[in-house]
Computed example of a mutant assay.
Amino acid sequence: MNLRPLMLPLLFGAAAVQVAAAQTQTLTIQHDEGRTSVPGRPQRVVVLDEEALGWMFALGLGDRVVGLGSSYLTPGDLSGGKLKPGVLGSGFYARGALKNPSFVGSWTTPNFETITALKPDLIVRLTWEGNQNYDKLSRIAPTLGYQESGAGFWQKGLRDLARIFGKQVQAETVIKQAADVNRTNARKLLAAGVFKTYDKVVVLAPFSGNSIWAYSRVRLIDDLKALGFKDGLKVGAATLGVGAQVSEEALLNLSPKTLVVLFPPGGQYDGAEAFLKTAVGQRLKAQSVLYTPEAFSPYSGPLTSIRNSNEVTRLILDKLK
């Protein structure tokens, strides 16, 4: 007798029981804003910034995102509280299977009414010392907060989400992939003799309005250090733990052997073009490369790290040809 037809319903039934058990399991997550009990494998997730969105994308969970917060989006990018199709399918947003999430404000000014109406079972956000609204968000749904200045910032956030969604193997795979890409590109730069010309690096973020920031942690600089560069500029007390505003005098004193990577913020905050027209920008032009991130890109994360490494390596090698 062929027992296979008889066994299939039993197997499918067992699988369904396992999935149901995983979804009802409650996990306790230690994050930068406290300890939070989270239901296993949430179905409706609100992310309050592109960093958290990038972690969801890396785990193949973009379709679980029902609400998206962003500082990049403007009223012209939205229609009826949703991202316009052209925006949804452009830049970093096209990296994952987003299903037309609602816009829920920014990481500093979340729209509580919209978030509540979405009935999320998990909220994920970046945070910083003195940030507000955690209690309000936690009354809507379990909320996890992560500081960019924290050790292993994006790896920690990614691994926590992987544990919640049962995606630990996938998380470790993508973390290793990002590290492997940096190692491969480091060998390319070394073989090309790049470090004989530039042994140090500084990452400058030119903002509209003529303010210049130097990143000291997380935002691109960590990938450049992994490629083999040393710090070319010591910044003062870091805002949000990742960088500080720098003076023109400090930039004019940079060594000619310090590579300057211009890494402008996205959207309306991009001041790279204006900076390059200034006296300081002209002075540093010969030792600078301009790296423009994808539209709506997070500053960090596994997918961003891989793109950073590959694109900046290409720019540097092209400059030295």
Rank of each mutant, 00 (worst) to 15 (best):
T313W: 11
Q245R: 14
I212G: 00
S309C: 07
H31G: 02
L137R: 08
I123C: 01
G40C: 06
P302R: 06
S37M: 07
S106K: 04
A274N: 08
F195V: 02
D77A: 11
Y215K: 00
D49T: 13
V289I: 15
A226P: 01
K84N: 05
A16N: 03
V66S: 07
W55N: 13
T109K: 12
F153H: 14
T28V: 15
K200Q: 14
G67C: 01
K196Q: 12
N100S: 15
Y269D: 15
T74C: 01
F195I: 05
L144Y: 06
E51G: 00
R183Y: 03
K84A: 11
V194N: 02
L53G: 06
R4P: 00
Y269M: 15
R283D: 11
T127Y: 09
T109F: 04
L224D: 07
V201C: 06
R64A: 08
K200S: 15
A58L: 02
G67V: 06
S216V: 01
Y146C: 02
K99G: 05
T292L: 14
I29L: 08
T74Q: 13
K119C: 02
G105A: 08
A295Q: 14
E129V: 09
G209A: 04
R217N: 09
T197Y: 04
V312K: 01
L122A: 00
A94K: 15
W213Y: 14
D121G: 06
L303M: 12
L59I: 09
L88V: 12
S70H: 00
A21I: 09
A14C: 13
L320G: 08
P85V: 10
A15R: 03
V87N: 09
D160L: 04
R307G: 02
D270K: 10
I140M: 10
K167S: 12
F207I: 00
F263G: 05
V17R: 13
S305L: 00
V174L: 08
V261Y: 07
Y291K: 01
W154R: 04
M56I: 01
L118F: 09
Y198P: 07
D63L: 00
L118Y: 05
D223G: 00
R125V: 06
R314K: 13
L158V: 04
S211A: 11
S79Y: 09
L227F: 10
S216Y: 00
N182P: 01
E249G: 06
V174N: 05
P85E: 06
L8V: 15
T143D: 04
L303H: 03
A237W: 02
K321A: 08
E33H: 04
V218G: 00
I221V: 15
Q268H: 11
Q18L: 15
L27T: 06
L88G: 05
A171M: 03
A191I: 05
V19Q: 14
Q282I: 08
L73Q: 02
D318T: 10
G152I: 05
V312L: 07
G67D: 02
Q168C: 06
V194H: 10
A244I: 09
K119N: 12
T278L: 14
A238D: 13
S305K: 12
S305V: 02
L252C: 03
R187K: 15
A141N: 04
R44M: 02
M7V: 15
G67T: 06
T36A: 05
L262C: 07
L78G: 06
G243P: 10
